[in-house]
Every structure is written in C-alpha cells, then in structure tokens.
Design a protein around this nucleic acid. Structure first.
Lengths: 236, 236
DNA sequence: TTAGTTCTAGTCAATTTGACTATAACTCCT
DNA sequence: AGGAGTTATAGTCAAATTGACTAGAACTAA
C-alpha cells in the first residue's frame, strides 16, 4: 500500500521519459502459398514490465542524435537491419501506456528490402512474425502496429512507396504482388501494369528475369526519392 | 570559456525536455480584398532565448494529461480558443532547435471556426498573422508552419476537412472560398459544386442565406466525423 | 422595369478506369 | 521436335469521372 502510494508520488515528480520505437515491415514468402506477405520483427522483453512478452524494438534517445538517427540506430542494434525507408509514424503519449512510469514513445516505421531482411539477426529474443498473426504484445504495441499498417496501406494507395519493399530491379508482377500483399486483395494484372507504366519514376531496363517456367518478364527500376518529412525535406 | 564548457556538460546530462506546441489555423477576411485567407495566432516570447520574437503557442507537458489534452489546454490558455479540429502534426527533435537545451517538441495543428476566431484574445503578446506573411519566428517555427501548411493542403485535397474552418451552416460558395484560400488557386464554381454535392457527408438544409445582392444560396451542413488518429480512433 | 450579380442545372468532349480478349515468348513434358 | 502449360504484354470497349463551357433562375439595386 505505502509503496504503491510512493510509486504514484515518484511518477508525478519524474519528467515523462522519452523512448523511440520502430515498426519494421519486410516482405517474406508465406509458409504455405509461397506468395509474399508482410512480416514484422519483434524482440522479447527481458525485464519487467511485460517480461517475456514480444514488443517493438526500441530504446532511449541519446543526446547526440536526432530522432530519426535514434530510430535507425536501435533498429540496427536490435535486428541488424538498415532500412531503405524510414519515416516518423506518431508520438504516443497516453497516460497509462506503461504501468510503471509515464512514457512518451516517438514511433517510426521502416521498410526493408527482402535481401536485407533475409540477413537479419534472428535469435531466441528476436523473431519475425506475420503482420496479421501477432498475438498479444507488450504495452500498447498492438495498437501502434495497427496504425502503422493503416498508414502503410494508405501511402501505398497513392505514393510510390511499394518499391522500398523490393530490391533495385523488379518485374511489374512483383510490384503487383506487393500491392496484393499489403492491400489484401487481387488486382487485374493488365490494368495494374498500365497504371504503373504510366508513372514516370519507373524506368524500363533492357534486362529480363530468366528462370521462370514461362515468358521472361522485363526488369524495371525505381528512380524516385524517398519522402517529404520535415526531417527529409532538405535532402533533395 | 569554462561556463560554456559547463553548459555543454549540463546539456549532456539532463534528459531532453518535452514540449507541446500548436499551429492554429483560422479563416479571416483579407484586409483589402475581403476574401477569406488563412491566419495563425502567435505569441511573443517574454524570456530568452528569442526574447521578443513571435513563436507558436506552446508549453510543457504535465503529468495528468494526454498529449492531445495538453495541446488543447495550452491553446485555450494562450489564445482562449477551443479548436473544432485537432490533430498531431509531427514530433520535432533536431539537436539544435533551441540554443540553450535539447528540446523535443510534439506539435499539433488545429482548425478553429470563424465565430470562435473572432472571439480570440488578442493583446500585446498575442497577435494574428496571415499565414503567408509571417516574418522570422523563434526557433524552427517557420519550418514547422511550412510543414503544417503542406499537411493542411494535402488533407484538403482529399479528406473532408475544410468544413472545420466554417460554422455549422454554410453555402457551397463558402466551401469553395476555403479551398481557394488554402490551395491558392481559383476553382470552377459549377464543377466544384458538383463534386461537393456528390460527397454523402454534405447535407442540404431548406434554409437559404439572405442578405447578398443576388440570388440567395442554399445552406448546407456537414455531418462527418473528425479523424482517424490513434488518439481519436476509439471514439466512433 | 431593367441591369447586375451569383446560384444552379445541364451539355459535351477528353480523360481515366474496369472488365475483358488475344497474341507473344518462354519452359516442361512426351 | 512439337505440343501443352504458364505468364507477359498489348490492345479493345463501355462506363465513370473530369474540365470547359452555356444558359436559365432568382435575387438586389437603381
């Protein structure tokens, strides 16, 4: 009782602590169908609160780095990944996010290319999960991931963001598969290719992808620049 | 010399402080043309750094309130305004935003209706400025406002956000003027009205606005709900 | 009564979208 | 060597949307 009261008092005095977390998306083949699906790496908590549960990778903000630098650093430290796309998602600051203290989390979301995702560290305490089968996570991390998914789908519908989930060269069918995986519906191949080919950021190469048991598709590449965040705006 | 070194050391030790600021938009008639234009209220800084310069209204985050509550509270305290729309903009956390200490600012943006904006406190230290004629502000506040303007224009192009800058009842021509003011270009009245009338959230009333020197236009109202932020999501 | 103004409904061609068909180009199997 | 199977790619056509424009309706001011 007394200790509980003391905790409340301590909570009132200490300033809210600031943390950075990241929702990382990558494409991986589904176990059964083999089609690409969205996956997210999570880390197991090794201390209270929520000890033993899975959570988003994250950590504190150090003094010598910007928010975005902090995000990509702890992304590298916990999963070994270097994102091809990194953008601020939202600042979560609800009063009861953590049972022990008031924490404000500035959350980023990242896309990594499949070649990188394959190299990612995986261990007892770092594991990849299908974005649609996560189970219950620590803190409010399910809410955060839901919102990140919503943002991803939204950006996908307009922006040219899908390409950051692919390697440098890709076929138009691969782009379509990305859309199908993220939006979770099938798209007409012919109409989809007409639309993609109309966007000027996509350039034809004269390479073809060999190896399929069918006509080899042409390879394309993406020549657009990342984003329009305040943090990224200066870099033209 | 020594004191400067001491400051650096202090800066390294103290945790980054957390602040909340708000970019507030309202429509006001331009001085000359009388057409509605975008205005923003700013407060004058009464202490260093940037003493005497204009800045966004803001303040610290207290322990008993969520981020959004903090935003609407200090908005009410500094300007007397209650926003009809309030959404998180971005968390700014660059290393050198403030010359004296590391500050992370979580910035919100708000829309207020013209009836409210007219009532807003204005004083020696609180003043409204046209969004396109601000001059140099304290900290990185010009950058922040640029980004808020970009977001406003973006949301306007899709979402049904323009109505939060108007009162409960409005004519279709008034909606068009909002779009023209924010997007800074003229729109065809007939085509614009066709589009607006096609959105289901706009409902006809059987009231008409009298008083003009021309055919009285029909009044409409907006029946849509605010936003899709994580903070607003639970409220259906 | 008439001129001036904005509101409002409508037309029409140009563009975009969605559903679909047909041919091309490869691999695998016999 | 010659299909059969499979995906790539181009193209057609009707429906829906958009942009530019015309014209009448309904008010005020003179």
């Amino acid at each position: 009782m007394y200790t509980a009261a003391a905790n409340v008092a301590e909570r009132q005095l200490a300033p809210p602590s600031l943390a950075i977390s990241t929702v990382i998306f990558a494409l991986r083949p589904s176990e059964r169908s083999g089609r690409p699906t969205l996956w997210i790496p999570l880390v197991r908590r090794i201390r209270e609160p929520f000890k033993g549960m899975w959570a988003l990778p994250g950590g504190p903000l150090t003094h010598s780095e910007s928010l975005q630098d902090a995000a990509s650093r702890n992304l590298r430290e916990t999963t070994g990944l270097a994102p091809s796309y990194l953008e601020q998602l939202y600042a979560f600051g609800g009063l009861h996010r953590s049972p022990t203290q008031r924490v404000v989390s500035i959350v980023y979301w990242a896309l990594v290319q499949p070649t990188e995702a394959a190299l990612a560290d995986e261990s007892e305490n770092v594991k990849w999960f299908r974005a649609d089968r996560l189970g219950g996570l620590a803190f409010d991390h399910n809410t955060i991931i839901d919102y990140a998914l919503w943002r991803l789908r939204n950006k996908m519908a307009y922006g040219s963001i899908a390409y950051h989930l692919l390697g440098e060269y890709f076929t138009l069918a691969q782009v379509r598969e990305v859309y199908e995986a993220v939006l979770d519906r099938e798209l007409d191949p012919a109409n989809f290719r007409r639309q993609v080919k109309a966007t000027p950021e996509i350039e034809e190469t004269d390479q073809y992808l060999q190896g399929g048991k069918h006509r080899p598709p042409r390879l394309y590449r993406f020549s657009g620049r990342p984003g329009l965040d305040p943090d990224n705006r200066s870099t033209p």
